[in-house]
Write a protein that binds this DNA or RNA. Structure first.
Lengths: 192, 192
DNA sequence: CATCTTCTATGACATTCGTCATAGTAGCGC
DNA sequence: GCGCTACTATGACGAATGTCATAGAAGATG
């Protein structure tokens, strides 16, 4: 759960990511983050001389890596690997996470994009990178399932779009229905 | 374009919606909005005694109604109406809007959900309502195209999920590719 | 012990925020 | 003219923000 490995630095990055998921970039106060991380406030300027942008950037990087690792866990766990099954596994994972926390937390990448794709290009790029980090293992898994590289890329993009959108809808109505819906509807398409 | 019909009140709501699309809820300053609307600051407490929540709420309501009207325009304009064609029309519309403004502005509903689904339930409900307002004409159009009511609801939900997610991805990579992709991939599925 | 680097601890700064209080103006019915 | 309502105009307040300056502790290395 808490992949906050060791030191205060890691805990700050982790906690920043969790805070992003709840209130977005502008809504995330560094003082709050530092308190939640049980870290001294002085660590902020020591470990993150780049300021908030750096922290948000690293939080996104961490989130992308975490999501990618999670995908690979699903791939490894699957008995009959198909794109549809993988998608369902990922979506179910998100549905469980959302519901277990009362739909408090969404996707940090989406939050970053929505908040500062306009004015903060550094954060936008970090979000884009995190998205790629996340997508890569999905694409690779699809290739391993026999899809061509180009087709795999298309399908993984479709997956992420449907997932991100479903997370938004699910949080809006506080119900995992949209997530279950996209899994049910898209799985056969992905396996076709 | 600017559906800011007449008075300062309408202009404030409209401008608030546009600002939401760029920087989310927390990033939207009421002073900025009022300046952009060319409205006097005193109008804030006069027209919106409910404060920021009310303004954001009305901005979302306006956005939902606008999106719904836009859908109906597409429906009216279509020569060979099919679900896939409708979806493509909607997605193309968004792609053109995103690109024309350099991916500055996204979906206000998504912004509201991402920013305050956690702590601000009034805004979350407003976002949810806007989503329903938007979805209804889509569902009705699908019914008119021969889908059963339940099936139409499922398909329109799928459309919105894919669209919302694609908008996020598109803004992250500053490219309409994800939007075109979901249209291309989903259209045949919707028409099946 | 002395020194140097790493990390922590606070206090202060300038902004910005949403909100409120208060006063002013415009226009209309009478 | 008066009175009333609708709207505008500002100034101020307290809270919170990111950032910086500065100084202190800890711990290794010499």
């Amino acid at each position: 759960m808490s992949a906050s490995t060791h030191g205060p630095r890691e805990r700050i990055v982790y906690e920043a990511a969790q805070h992003l998921r709840r209130t977005g970039v502008a809504g995330t106060g560094l003082r709050e983050v530092v308190v939640a991380a049980g870290a001294p406030r002085g660590s902020l300027q020591h470990y993150f001389p780049g300021g908030k942008d750096q922290i948000v950037g690293e939080a996104l990087e961490w989130s992308g890596a975490w999501a990618a690792a999670r995908v690979q866990e699903h791939v490894a766990r699957m008995r009959r690997p198909t794109p549809g099954h993988l998608f369902t596994a990922i979506v179910d994972d998100w549905a469980a996470d959302l519901a277990s926390r009362d739909f408090e937390r969404g996707c940090p990448v989406a939050a970053a994009v929505v908040d500062c794709a306009d004015a903060n290009d550094a954060v936008r790029q970090a979000a884009n990178l995190a998205l790629q980090t996340w997508q890569r293992p999905i694409t690779e898994a699809l290739v391993a399932m026999g899809r061509g590289p180009r087709r795999a890329q298309v399908l993984s993009t479709l997956m992420l779009c449907a997932l991100e959108g479903a997370v938004v809808l699910a949080r809006a109505q506080r119900d995992t229905a949209p997530l279950r819906l996209v899994a049910r509807e898209l799985a056969p398409v992905l396996d076709a």
